[in-house]
């Protein structure tokens, strides 16, 4: 029987792979996808914060008048709005980052895995402590 099977034909080329085209807007389809993209977009706001910080340092080095102008610029409603959106995104980045910490690094202690909740809790406690320290340096009456 096997003798009568037609000989297998080989071609030099790969067959075409079946790759359905994914829409550019795939991330709008489901909430977890959108959340993923929003988390990625948070990086743009991290960069915006660096821009503001560098402008502040430059204004500081240029003298009191330049610094007063920088402070007025910060009071521009559009800049305030942008900074409000930025705050939302950087807090979103921080919380998603801390919530992922147990998955990113599984810590073992005494042969047992440290519970996820403890790692996340430690991160949030450290966040609160660091925020207080930064605020302590900046807020002076």
């Amino acid at each position: 029987m096997s003798d009568e099977r037609p000989p297998t034909r080989y071609t030099e080329y790969h067959p075409r792979w079946y790759r359905p085209r994914v829409s550019t807007w795939w991330w709008l389809a489901r909430w977890p996808y959108l959340k993923f993209i929003l988390r990625e977009i948070s990086s743009v706001f991290v960069a915006w914060f660096v821009v503001v910080l560098l402008l502040q340092i430059r204004a500081l080095s240029r003298g009191p008048e330049a610094y007063a102008a920088f402070e007025r610029w910060l009071q521009n409603p559009l800049i305030v709005l942008l900074n409000l959106i930025t705050l939302f995104f950087v807090v979103f980045h921080a919380t998603t980052w801390f919530n992922l910490a147990p998955s990113a690094m599984a810590i073992r202690f005494g042969g047992k895995r440290v519970p996820d909740l403890l790692i996340v809790g430690t991160n949030y406690a450290a966040w609160a402590a660091i925020s207080l320290v930064v605020a302590w340096f900046l807020v002076r009456s």
Binding site: V46, F49, V52, I79, T86, V90, A94, A126
Partner: peptide, 13 residues
């Protein structure tokens, strides 16, 4: 970024 930017931005911005 997660630890220090939120507080910096909240105060400065």
């Amino acid at each position: 970024a997660a630890f220090v930017i939120p507080v910096h931005l909240f105060l400065l911005g």
